[in-house]
Design a protein around this nucleic acid. Sequence first.
DNA 1: TAGTCAAATCAAAAAAAGTTGTTTTGTCAA
DNA 2: TTGACAAAACAACTTTTTTTGATTTGACTA
Lengths: 106, 106
Amino acid sequence: MSDVIELNTSACSGFHALSDPLRLQIIDLLRQQELCVCDLCDRLEVRQSKLSFHLKTLKEAGLLRSRQEGKWSYYSLNLPEIARLEQYLSNLKQATPRPSRSCSED
Amino acid sequence: MSDVIELNTSACSGFHALSDPLRLQIIDLLRQQELCVCDLCDRLEVRQSKLSFHLKTLKEAGLLRSRQEGKWSYYSLNLPEIARLEQYLSNLKQATPRPSRSCSED
DNA sequence: TAGTCAAATCAAAAAAAGTTGTTTTGTCAA
DNA sequence: TTGACAAAACAACTTTTTTTGATTTGACTA
């Protein structure tokens, strides 16, 4: 039961992280390769502080990893977490359906 | 290209709809059977107007269907749309990765 | 060390999302 | 019809999220 709540909380913040167009663009760019913040800035044409905010959101939701190399920070997808969200959605389909009942029946 | 934008917009609002704990609870209840608003109200112990707001959010994102029967409204999952979001996540994994490159290389 | 650059952090403002209580709409039944 | 009930819509308010411009931090190098 506590597991369900855990799962819900994590799914919730994961989906929230995916609910912004810029963040989806970031993820799309990172599909192909790890990128550093300045590269992302160039490609997305957004201010650095704005990007930083969204990268933080994605990272805190567990969707991105980052590593530092000198003065650069590189971000990449954290595929296992993405797979977990995928699994969450997949589970919704496999529920044992009960027959629908009429609201007046009780 | 326009397709990508379409997909992104729809994915965005889908994920947004999934980014609230109450809405995830609603979805969880509907996994098993279609329910009417008053049933959902009882089980979730929330005001009707609040529930109505969240049902609308979910429906506008395409995640729920509804039908009216007399004075009752019944809501159910729209599985194909959920599957579409699942597919979106699944696609993220299958990208052809390019070797990561150093930021100073240009 | 002083200067430069990448990136994170912060505070203030703006925008968006969610809540609440009330009203409206539509359907049914007396 | 009229009254009762389910659900949607609304307006005012609260809370959360996002944006912006500026400052700070940390690492490199001249």
